[in-house]
């Protein structure tokens, strides 16, 4: 297929839809998703971020229980099942809102996706896709690639292949450990981010700290994705 580019998330800011007025009765809509006057459902604005949609502050630690409760509550408010007897316009809004809600829940529920999403909101760019190994893993990964190639070329029933396989197994364990370390570091960064936000300081120092956290988070996230892909490839090869 020709002429196809990836822009999953970049349009959020381009499309600003006013949501201050009810589409149906033109009266002012204060905050929630239903018009105070005519009780019609309102489309979730495309500029509304997922955190706000759930009524959560932009923090990286989330109470999963609260998130689920809110998801169920909003599902009851938006799901097309409850709009069967309503007008076409309301059915369309219900469908759009439900689809958006489901995406928001899926994103916020998973800590990695949540962090990637926040990074996108705060730093305004899509995630880095790493094509070369991170510096501290460079040697190790190159060696692993050689071992993988050797294994792929080997006669799987031979002793040599068995030796390579067990070598790859221990590589896998090491890389998975590495992945967990990165996740621990991310958790620490999450805490630092949330603390900084809670303090709400507007100093240069705070701004520098904010940029540092975001940069570190971006680096670790892209390294983690890289390692994860290597592990997936490894698992598929020795399976």
């Amino acid at each position: 297929m020709d002429g196809h580019t990836h822009h999953h998330t970049s349009d959020r800011r381009e499309l600003q839809m006013a949501r201050s007025m009810c589409w149906h009765c033109q009266s002012e809509v204060s905050g929630e998703y239903f018009c105070d006057r005519c009780v019609k459902v309102q489309p979730v604005s495309k500029e509304l971020d997922y955190f706000t949609c759930f009524g959560f502050p932009r923090r990286l630690s989330i109470d999963q229980q609260k998130l689920e409760t809110k998801f169920y509550e909003l599902s009851r408010a938006f799901h097309p099942d409850f709009y069967q007897n309503k007008s076409d316009a309301e059915q369309t809004i219900s469908l759009g809102n439900s689809a958006m809600l489901n995406t928001a829940y899926r994103t916020l529920r998973d800590p990695i996706q949540r962090a990637e999403y926040l990074l996108d909101l705060e730093a305004g760019s899509v995630k880095d896709i790493r094509t070369t190994p991170p510096a501290d893993l460079f040697e190790e990964i190159l060696e692993l690639q050689d071992t993988l190639d050797e294994f792929r070329a080997s006669d799987r029933t031979s002793d040599a292949a068995a030796a390579l396989r067990s070598q790859l197994q221990s590589e896998r364990t090491a890389l998975e450990g590495r992945q967990r370390d990165m996740e621990t570091q991310l958790q620490q960064l999450f805490g630092r981010w949330d603390g900084l936000q809670d303090r709400g300081e507007a100093t240069d120092q705070a701004r520098a700290e904010r940029d540092r956290i975001l940069k570190d988070m971006r680096d670790i996230l892209s390294n983690r994705t890289y390692v994860k892909n290597i592990v997936n490839d490894l698992v598929a090869t020795i399976a």
């Binding site: 002429g3 196809h4 580019t5 822009h7 689809a99 995406t103 899926r106």
Partner: peptide, 15 residues
Amino acid sequence: NTTIPASAKEMFTTY
């Protein structure tokens, strides 16, 4: 296994 309704957007252009 994505909850439905579900949507995705893609941008297309020409070469």
